[in-house]
Amino acid sequence: MIQHLVDGILVGSILSLGAIGLTMAMHMLRFANFSHAELLSIGAYCALVFDGVFTAVYAPLGNVIGPLSLTWALSLAILVSMAITGGSAILIDRLVFSRVRAKGGELSMVFASFGVAMIIRNALGLIFGLQVQLYSKDIVFATVLSRDPLLLVKPDQIFSLAAALFIMVIFHLMLSRTTFGYSLRAVAENPDLAQVSGINLNQMITLIWIIGGGLAAAAGVFYGLTNQVNPVLGRDLLLPIFAATIVGGIGSIYGAALGGFLVGIASNMALLILPSGYSPAMPFLIILVVLVIRPTGLFGEERA
């Protein structure tokens, strides 16, 4: 029971990072972006590549940090990956979304995002192979935190959770303390007024892609660190991330953060009563429950 709760929190932090970026883009550009989860995959593979590059350039970087399987090289690679994934998100917007946006309605954007997701996912499969990859071949044993009830946690999981929380706190401080954060919130609330207040919308869209891509990359690496890296990583996390945005209310950044944890915990707790084979369907059940009880989610506003 407590093991499921803890696992749920760990997965939840990853979902939160993904959902924050997704909900911002959905709110600003008003379409459900089905390719968002592929940014997690891009981030995970990008870190894999740069992990190798850094270790090859300077071998001592390949040493692990403390009890983690995380190396110095990989921690640097995370930062590089965040930047590159943010850049990829902008590139995808420039190449596809902004052009479709100029031509057609929101519906075309949703279709385009599915197409983009298929291209990215399968291109990653072609480039890196369909097999599972790991950041570290070393086996890291889980630490027994408690015997009764049994609670096992890997150091890497603790690191991922702490790092995810750290990123979210930084993001929160930015939103609540800086004028850049105010502009983000202003644009989310009222794009027209934001414009006449001197905020350049196109610039904000670019920034939202950078932030969304960066957070997604971190989420992808943390997922890879605590599970594994494979080309369908994004596909498997897509529905849980969407569920997190709906639980929080589409457009609500704080809702998405909280929604990620709720979905992670609920999915893991459900394993107490359901066979594990059903876990991919859990996010859908959560979506159904939210739509029945409170369609606008925790913090969402009703918008047509």
């Binding site: 459900a32 529905l239 969407f242 589409i250 991919p280 369907a281 859908f284 979506i287 739509l291």
Partner: peptide, 23 residues
Amino acid sequence: LTLRLRHDYLAIATFGVAVAFEN
């Protein structure tokens, strides 16, 4: 459940139905 909400909800819910159905 979804048609009174903004259009993304239908997109996400129908996508979810397919995942859950196959599962």
